[in-house]
């Protein structure tokens, strides 16, 4: 029997693999055409290296982050690597998480990405999906919503965040070389971040 956390991360790996060409095509428009290929390579390695039966959520996220660091290859390696590792620190030793825990994990992941990428909201990055998703998530939880209900609302905001990235120019990453020409295209990082949240939601709904 594999653990819940293994199954959840394996589900994310599946979705990244299914969307490999889509993410790479998005990145071809405004970047170096490697986001999907890189992420798929990273999550393929995660699936190989992650212990199937360890239920420790913190340990699994840490292992996922470390693996992404050394196998993704592009900037999304250290960015997602830091996000998973920092979320893992919040969940250290836990085999179950509450709605509040998940909010703290999301917060830690976002802080890690911001520190690593030196980026703010509004720069056409994954933060444009993750930050509004986090804000809505914590609002809903504060209002008494459970994890799944709050995450459902968060995913909606993350999708709006993707749409927002179409309207702005990139000032970080490879797309910033294109300046005004990056407007009109959605950000591949915001897209993969949203896919991740949606997959966690789908997994939790069963």
């Amino acid at each position: 029997m594999s653990s819940r956390i293994y199954d959840c991360i394996a589900a994310i790996a599946d979705v990244i693999e299914e969307n490999k060409d889509f993410l790479t095509d998005l990145d071809r428009e405004i970047g170096d055409a490697d986001h999907g290929v890189n992420m798929a390579r990273g999550f393929h390695a995660v699936r190989e290296k992650l212990p199937k039966d360890d239920p420790d959520i913190g340990a699994a996220l840490k292992k996922t982050g470390m693996t992404l660091l050394s196998t993704v290859g592009g900037a999304s390696g250290p960015l997602y690597g830091t996000a998973y590792m920092d979320a893992g620190k919040v969940a250290a030793g836990k085999t179950e998480i509450t709605a509040e825990d998940f909010g703290e994990m999301l917060k830690a992941a976002i802080a890690g990405i911001q520190k690593r990428g030196k980026a703010e909201r509004g720069e056409k990055t994954m933060l444009d999906s993750l930050i509004p998703a986090y804000e809505t998530y914590t609002e809903k939880v504060a209002g008494g919503a459970d994890l799944v209900t709050a995450l459902e609302a968060a995913c909606e905001e993350a999708r709006k965040g993707i749409e927002f990235t179409k309207t702005i120019r990139a000032t970080k990453g490879r797309a910033s070389y294109l300046a005004e020409r990056s407007i009109g295209h959605q950000d591949p990082g915001a897209t993969s971040a949203t896919l991740t949240l949606e997959t966690i939601l789908k997994f939790l709904k069963g």
Binding site: L69, S70, V72, G73, G74, G77, P78
Partner: peptide, 13 residues
């Protein structure tokens, strides 16, 4: 590069 020889950077390396 990466351990498998492909283009990229690897923080652990």
């Amino acid at each position: 590069g990466m351990e498998d020889g492909s283009i990229g950077t690897d923080a652990v390396r």
